[in-house]
Nucleic acid binder design. Structure first.
Lengths: 234, 234
DNA sequence: CTGTATCCGTGTTGATACTG
DNA sequence: CAGTATCAACACGGATACAG
């Protein structure tokens, strides 16, 4: 039993890697496997349990999630903790270095937003929507604004604050916010990125806005999408 | 014959993808397959031929390289061109949007440079070394400097210019440079990143420096490595 | 010489079912 | 809830043969 485990681990360590001193290639050795970056993304706004990760990563299978978490833990990117009683659940959390990978998501997201084949009508996790706000905010439009905004998505709430051209977001209770968007992540995304009328989404029943409507309109206008790339001969 | 090709293409189009509206996930659909980003990296400093790519990507096989180039071309990231006679060779080149992926390499490289398991003694392609200079230059140290530097790596030459805290680099002839490093990419990397004595590398015969030695020392000092990440319990 | 196509052994991935 | 076991499908990489 023990021996089997050891050989298995040896196998994992000897897994495919690029023989390349380039730091980018090394990054791909660390997080280039399928699903790895998306697992990190889901942890980017704080610790999560195995099943949280599973439900927010449409399509990942349990064994692959296990493997990725083991690999990320071995690499020093993720750490697993047992929550103190009474919660007593096990959670996975990024290490400090793990959290520092956020610029990777921003550069990937900003670039891919220009893709001609990007389909924003697919499922959208709450975390990725929140992260996308950090990525896509237009500092020029946001400068001078100070808006406290809340989001209620399923069971979870996120609190954000626009200031100095940036937006800070964390998983937190909705105290002291000027504005709350409640709904599914895709619905909120339609309001912010597809530019759909807030009132239309509300009558559809997929979105609810509490607070100053004008402020809400101003808020969603802070997140313009870049123009699609023009593909020669495409 | 034709039918087979069509079914194969249909298969390729229907290949594994994340069902996720997040732009980061879409980026991974585009460039998340093994080798894809490294192929793009090799094209980042200008067009290359199939065999250039092969020799600079240690370990990629011809059929995988073909598949990646097809996929990247279909995605609008790479375009293939036939060089005019007499060269008449076929080359692969990034589209404008493809070139805009450079920040992805920078964020990956900067982050992975902190990895405790990064081994800089592996093979190093000329392009990745040149790109790493753009990524790792310390603007604070570089500000106020104006240095024209050349690199001769194998058959190729690269010309760089430090100015305004940045370094611009292109594949170009070595006219008008203050300083030339000649040698293999790993040797130059040892001088710049491992902080090895230039004179030691020269007596070893792996590096040659033409130009002002003091300037060379100043140049290599512009590229400090970040501290390794501390892994809790690692 | 520069790629492309095909075959094949092997390892990785993912769907389903199952266990503590 | 948090994973493990099993198995089929696929992707990878190497070799080789082929085309312009």
């Amino acid at each position: 039993m023990k021996l089997e485990k050891i050989t298995k681990e040896a196998k994992n360590n000897a897994r495919r890697h690029y023989d390349d001193a380039c730091a980018t290639a090394h990054a791909l050795d660390l997080v280039g496997e399928r699903w790895a970056l998306l697992v990190i993304r889901e942890l980017m706004l704080g610790p999560r349990r195995f099943s949280d990760l599973r439900t927010n990563l449409p399509g990942i299978s349990a064994n692959v999630l296990t493997q990725r978490l083991e690999g990320l833990e071995a690499a020093g990117i993720v750490i697993r903790r047992k929550l103190p009683p009474p919660a007593a659940a096990q959670v996975y959390e990024l290490t400090e270095w793990g959290y520092q990978s956020e610029p990777i998501f921003q550069s990937l997201g900003r670039w891919a937003a220009r893709s001609p084949t990007h389909d924003p009508s697919l499922p959208f996790s709450a975390v990725s929507l929140m992260l996308s706000l950090r990525t896509m905010i237009d500092p020029a439009r946001a400068r001078g604004r100070d808006i406290r905004v809340g989001f209620r998505i399923g069971e979870e709430t996120y609190a954000g604050r626009v200031s100095e051209g940036q937006i800070a977001i964390e998983r937190a209770a909705l105290d002291n916010v000027d504005l709350v968007f409640s709904g599914t992540a895709p619905a909120i995304a339609r309001a912010i990125y597809a530019g759909q009328e807030l009132s239309a989404l509300e009558s559809e029943g997929v979105l609810q806005i509490d607070g100053d409507r004008t402020l809400a309109k101003r808020f969603v206008s802070l997140f313009p999408l870049p123009p699609k790339a023009e593909i020669p001969g495409g």
